[in-house]
Each structure stands twice: as C-alpha cells, then as structure tokens.
Design a protein around this nucleic acid. Structure first.
Lengths: 352, 352
DNA sequence: CTGAAAGCGCTTACAG
DNA sequence: CTGAAAGCGCTTACAG
C-alpha cells in the first residue's frame, strides 16, 4: 500500500505538502502542486480513509437507513415487497452521490423491533450523516438523533418533519390530479381505495377526494370510499371483492398507491371484468410495479428517484452548513398515462 | 465522544486491557473482564472504527457492487427496472450481515462505462471484501481484483466463475422443472420465450427445453422457440405479437424470466386472450414481479434472498480463511404454483 | 494476567 | 509557500 509518505518522498516534498495538495488548499504553489499530483497518479496513490477519518473525525460515508415494517420475511407471495418505494428512493440517492467523494453505507432498520434504538450506522459512527428513507420511523429515535445533532434528512411519501430537512410528497395533490383526469375523461364518479386510517395521509387523500368530487360535480357515496385494513394488495383485493359482492359497480377507481391498485385489478381480472374497457383504474405513488401491471397502470408519479436525489443534496448541504435553516422539498406530481384509463364514453357494459 | 481511554480510567485498568476485552482475548481475567464490560455499558462506549481500522488495516465493512447495464435512466416505463433481481439478492445480503459487526457499503457499478476500472469501494479501500451482484461484469475488472487478492464473491443467476466463490443458478434445471409441470398438467407442447442469444444461459435453457420436450414426447417446432432481441418485457411483448400474428397458438408458454413472461402476458391481455384459461404461462427466476402479475405468475423460484445470504456467508468465510478452497453454491430451484397455469383439460377454446 | 510504548496514515496548527 | 511535530483512537508485541 502506498502511503502519503511515499508520495512525499517521490515528489521530494514533505507529507504536509502532499496533504495540502490532496485537500486542495490554496497554500500550495502551482509548480509544487503539479509535481505532487503527478506523483500521485504515477504511484496510483489513494488516501487511506481510516487515517483521514481518524484525524479529521469524518467518515466520508453517508448512511441510508431504509425503514422496514418488520424483519423481512423471505417469501414470494403477493405483497412480499412493500419496500419498492424505498428502493426507488434509494436509487436516487445512489445517483446523486455517485460522483462525490462519499460512499453510501446502507442498512435496513426496523424501529418497531428496536424502539428508541439508533441505526447501526450511527451507533458505530460509520457515517457523517443519515438519510432516513420511508416509514415507519420511531419518534424517540428521531429525538435522540436530533439531540446528538446528527446530520439528518428524511425522505419518504409521508416523511415531513418540522425542523428537519425533509423530502416528501403531497398525496392530496395526487388524488386531485387523478380526479381531474377522470373528470376530463368523462367520468362522473369514482371508487376511492384508500390506505388504512392509521396512515395519516389517508385523511389528506379523503379530503382531496371529497373536495375534488364536489368541484367536478361527482356523486359522493359513503360506500364508495373504502379504507383497506392494511396497506397491501391483498387487502385491496379483499375490499374490492366485498364492494363487488355488495353490488357496487364503479366505472373508475382511484387507488392510494400501486399495490392497492393492483390488488383491486387482480380481483376484477378474476371476475372477468376488463380494465380499462369496463373499469378504469388510476394509481398513485408510481413505482416499478406500475409499468409491469397488466394492463400497464395509469398513475400519478411522484418521482421517487428525484426525491432520493434531493435528499442526498440536502444532506450534503447540511454537512457543509450544519446550522442552515431546514429545507423542505415536496415532490412534484405528474400524471403518467399508460393503459388503465380510457374515456368513459368508450367503455362497454358490464356483463349481466 | 467517549474513548477507550475514558473507559480504562473509569474501570481503573489500562487501555490495552480494555482493548483486549473488546476483542475478547482469552488473556483477561474474568473479574477484570466483567468490570470493563460494565464500564463500557455504563459509559455507552462504542469503539471508533476509523481508529480500529487504521491499526488493524480493516474496515469492518463489506462492499456490495450491484452491476448495472448502464447509468440508470430515471423513467417509469415498462422495463425501467431490470435490476429487481439484484435488489432481491441484496436483500439476502443485508439479512445475513444484520447481526454481524459488518456494515455494508453499497454501490451501483457499470463495467460497461468503466472498462477495467474497479468499483469505488475497493479503489478507496472502504471495505474488506466485495460481493459482485448480477451482471454484466468486466473480465479485466475481475482479473485486477484477483491479482490484488481482494476477497471476492460473485452472486447472480449467471455468476459462476471458476476459482472464485460463486453463488448462481441453474437455468437448465428451471426449464426442466417447468416442462415437467406442464407435462404433468397435460400439455403436449409449449412455446419457449428465451432470452437473447447473447446471454450464455440461453443455450442452457434451449438444451433443457429440447431434451425435456423429447423426454415428455412434446412436439418441438422451430417456430416455437423464440429468442428475444433484448432481455426486456417489451421485447417479449413484440415477439409474442409476432408469433400470434404468424398464427402460432400456444396453449402453454415457458419464459426465461419474469419480465419476459409479463411482456408476453401483456400482449395476450390486449388480444383478450385469457391467462390461464386459454394460455398457461410459467416463468423463471421468480421475482417481486411474479407475485404482482395479473394473474399471479406461476414460476420457478431460485430463492434469490437465499443466494444473497449464501454470498455473504461465503465472503465472511473468505475473510477468515483467505486461502480456503473456493466454494460454489447452486441455488435450489422450486416451483411456485400461483394462478397462471391450469390443467390443459380445463382450458377453453381460443376465440375464432 | 496487566501496563507502557510504538505505530497505523493522515491533518493541522505552528514556525520559519 | 513549506517542513517538523503533535495528535486522532485504537491494537499489538513486549516486558513484567
């Protein structure tokens, strides 16, 4: 392993000078700098990050804690991976950090199993800052992190936190956008498949649904507003079944996310009800899944990779300016038209 | 920050003793050990990994380089994420490393854009070893890694490498298993949707298909063996369309992976051909996608999380015993029966 | 079984 | 603009 000392000798300067060059200090003369840089490439020198970290109290790593509901069960059932959203956000983080000097050290962390605990990466001080991706996260954990003044940013659909850099989405806007589109396509009512009431954003969605329905003159009926038991496709499948068996025949469905949309679609397919020819479906929180649905799911995209990139940017800024005002970023919503919605006028009757 | 020195003072022993306790050396008396351990928990001491790394030339991190075809394009089209397989393998790595002292530092790496280059994590010596997940990986990169004797393991469907710890799958067995199942369900022929000829495993699959067909007395027709242009759902969609328009009417389809299966199913759905009532479909390399397909995809599972776990185990072993013989692990294949296959006898006629 | 000492590779005041 | 020196927090022979 070639050390800073070797480089110094080779370039016939002192270690300190080499160090200054590496950290491009303005204190070094142009000629000296060139000589040192040459030596570095000649010898293929790469600084030892442990040593650097030890003196400068820095790791040059960024921690990413992906929150998980519970210790992941390895299985391939429907709903095995409610973690896709976090996966997409992480992708954005990787892109943004690709060309920086930071490495990313990733960890799956379950606040539920370890209430109040800190992610391993901060306990062992393996990173200079942390991005908390997704939910659920623990209040106590957050408190401790803030007490320690550990550089922190939150990223997730529902991850707004007052006073800490946050990147999140506005589910209300998503619902509104979906409703506008349905209205534009000639629909006069829509079944809302919402997440569980335990999810705070379910109320945001509900409000948006109701006001949007009013604005467009949609009929609003209580039975057409359903909350799933859990945030899973299976749950949506069950609710869809119950609705159908209760005689509810929606021409359009608006779902709180891709999993729920696909769960409902699965039931319809079993019933030989065609999407979109008989029922149009629109999703939210566009994920990898949407593109692969059959038919491909029309959906409100919240640009999750962009969320990840923003989160990374926020953290880099925070590391530079620990006392800056907190920043917030609401992911822009955008309707992605695929194949699951057609104009109401083109739909065909339900089977008898 | 509390250091080893503080602990020593608190426990009234020397730094060395504390260090010995931490690295549970047998040289410490039981009484002393207890006292030190107590001090450690009392003071909430956690060793500085940079310092440790610096003296012991170790990072306590494991690198995971997820190979990517190209710099990822942020988009939400069909086929945006051919990386799901690697995602599933990574999950297994995380699980296996969860309760060890290792952190995992992850990186997306594109060999194609950087021929011969080493992943950042090894260039900067941020990890003690590396798991290369998925493909494509560069021959030259592999060479350099081996020259440096950097602890290495490969993990991926096609990741067998002579002389290096490898975790991979046997696509031939998968095809055989699928064909057996189709035969058992009363089918007498099947359309093979294979990956591109550029993928070495396409030949393994082809051989298995042919010998399996012979064994079961299936009719084999050249037009029923199709190689997709690219390894994407879109490509499978196109091929399926071409087949259909050429008058090919398979009662069963066996696809080389989930993406291809779903691409074909998408075309059939557009044609109002029902799966499985008119065409049964069976996939391979079971992924998150399969469970969410509509209908849920019957598929040969190669337990990708298990592959990740094994890869992690292999790397830990390699770190302990740098000169051990290389280990190989072939992921066990298992048929997962979901909803895309029914007995041939229960199928209904095609539309006129 | 325990302590004093050197060293890991870097950075950063401090002199010059 | 450059060099000598101390220090970051730990580990590991080496004495005792």
């Amino acid at each position: 392993m070639v050390t800073i000392y070797d480089v110094a000798k080779y370039a016939s300067v002192s270690k300190s000078t080499v160090s200054l060059v590496i950290n491009n200090s303005p204190l070094v003369g142009e000629a000296t700098r060139k000589k040192v840089l040459q030596a570095i490439t000649d010898m293929n020198y790469v600084p030892n990050s442990n040593a650097r970290g030890l003196s400068v109290k820095t790791t040059n790593c960024i921690g990413v804690a992906v929150m998980a509901e519970e210790t992941p069960v390895i299985s391939y059932d429907f709903d095995q991976h409610v973690g896709l959203c976090s996966y997409n956000i992480s992708s954005g983080i990787f892109s943004a950090l690709m060309d920086t000097r930071y490495g990313v050290i990733m960890e799956r962390f379950c606040s539920v199993d370890n209430p109040g605990e800190l992610p391993d990466v901060v306990r062992n001080r393996r990173a200079d800052g942390l991005i908390i991706v997704g939910a659920p996260y623990d209040r106590k954990m957050l408190e401790r992190l803030r007490e320690q003044r550990f550089p922190l940013v939150m990223a997730g659909v529902d991850s707004y936190e007052e006073g800490v850099d946050s990147v999140y989405a506005d589910p209300g806007e998503g619902v509104r956008m979906g409703m506008d589109y349905l209205a534009e396509q000639g629909y006069r009512e829509a079944l809302l498949i919402n997440c569980p009431r335990t999810t705070p954003s379910s109320f945001t969605r509900l409000d948006a649904y109701i006001s949007s329905a009013a604005a467009h003159g949609f009929t609003v009926r209580p039975e057409w507003i359903v909350n799933c038991e859990r945030n899973t496709g299976q749950s949506a499948y069950d609710r869809m079944k119950a609705c159908w068996e209760a005689g509810i025949r929606p021409r359009a469905i608006i779902a709180a996310n891709g999993h729920l949309a696909i769960g409902a679609m699965r039931y319809l397919n079993e019933r030989h009800v065609r999407v979109p020819e008989q029922v149009s479906v629109i999703g939210y929180e566009d994920s990898s899944l949407s593109g692969y649905a059959i038919p491909a799911l029309t959906s409100v995209n919240i640009h999750k990779e962009l969320m990840g990139q923003k989160a990374a940017e926020f953290l880099l800024r925070r590391l530079k300016h620990p006392n800056a005002e907190p920043s917030y970023f609401v992911a822009p919503a955008e309707l992605v038209r695929r194949d699951s919605v057609i104009p109401a006028a083109q739909q065909i009757p339900f089977p008898a």
